[in-house]
């Protein structure tokens, strides 16, 4: 039996592994895709203490190497279930089952989709969920950004420097994101606000050619764009574990300040946890707290 199984090898999960190993607990980290989580999409991290500039890839690789060198075992398997047997928890993957004394869920979150027909088919053919990743493909082209939070605003601002024209489509008339970013967008000649409206259809040949937009009164218009950046929030990856943890209405995992869930021995850390601030440094902090609490739980 392993002392601690960590689900997810992003900054929260890998930090938890580091802390657990330094407390001499055996650790298996299960990762569905690739270590690092969503930070690998970031070309340049500028807000992590001590690292004024580091790429997301390098940052992720460094934590991964650190966790491995301390003896954490990292397996690329997707956890689909946790069975709670009291002192023994069993984490189930497609291939294996892992018994553990404690489990830390650090699964992060995924992009929320618009849910339109052909959205998946057109992803990579005009539809994107990451402006800093894919923006360069739309130099001097017309694009739209859907969403009203900080990510949407920042995506629109980023694209305003690259694209010929940026439409910012938001279903309300006020933005959730920061006012200063809204003001900067208003000062750009090539940015148009399309408010009280939502994207209702994607029109494409081999690639996206236009989008249909419907306003709150039901009026339909068409925008000729070759790119659509979807920034309508994220979906926490807690669905597989909802029998053991409480989720809020948005699907985030409820926990105490020390990352404990309602199931003794099951902890949460990182972006899938209900909290106010989701940053690299808070993900790492969650990992440290959850691992310390898991160690305490095992030793008690």
């Amino acid at each position: 039996m392993t002392d601690i199984v960590v689900i997810g090898a992003g900054p929260a999960g890998l930090t938890a592994a580091i802390y657990a190993r330094r407390a001499s607990k055996s650790v298996i980290v299960l990762e569905a895709l690739s270590y690092g989580g969503q930070i690998i999409n970031t070309p340049d991290i500028e807000n992590y203490p001590s690292a004024a500039h580091i790429s997301g890839f390098d940052f992720a690789t460094k934590i991964y190497e650190q966790a491995k060198s301390l003896g954490a075992e990292i397996k690329f398997e997707k956890a689909v279930e946790i069975r709670d047997g009291g002192d023994v928890k069993t984490v189930v993957t497609a291939k294996n089952e892992y018994d553990a004394k404690a489990v830390i869920i650090a699964t992060g979150s995924a992009n929320r989709k618009l849910g339109l027909p052909d959205e998946d088919k057109l992803t990579g053919r005009g539809v994107s969920y990451c402006a800093t990743c894919d923006g360069a493909f739309f130099r001097n082209k017309k694009v739209a950004v859907a969403g009203g939070g900080n990510t949407a605003l920042e995506d629109a601002l980023y694209m305003a420097d690259i694209a010929e024209k940026v439409y910012l489509i938001h279903r309300r008339d006020a933005f959730r994101g920061e006012d200063t970013t809204v003001e900067r967008l208003k000062s750009r000649d090539n940015v148009s606000f399309v408010l009280n409206s939502r994207v209702t259809k994607l029109n494409a040949g081999r690639r996206l050619e236009s989008i249909e937009v419907t306003d709150k009164d039901g009026k339909v218009s068409t925008l000729e764009v070759s790119g659509l950046f979807v920034a309508v929030g994220r979906v926490p990856e807690n669905q597989n574990f909802s029998s053991l943890i409480d989720l809020d209405e948005a699907g985030y995992a409820a926990s105490s300040e020390n990352c404990r869930t309602r199931t003794p021995g099951v902890f949460v850390a990182g972006d899938n946890r209900a909290k106010e601030v989701r940053q690299l440094v808070t993900a790492a902090a969650d990992g440290a707290v959850a691992a310390t609490e898991a160690v305490k739980y095992i030793n008690s």
Partner: peptide, 12 residues
């Protein structure tokens, strides 16, 4: 080549 194959996200 990226244009020929309608690529707008990488890795593809």
């Amino acid at each position: 080549l990226a244009d020929d194959y309608d690529i707008s996200s990488i890795p593809c």
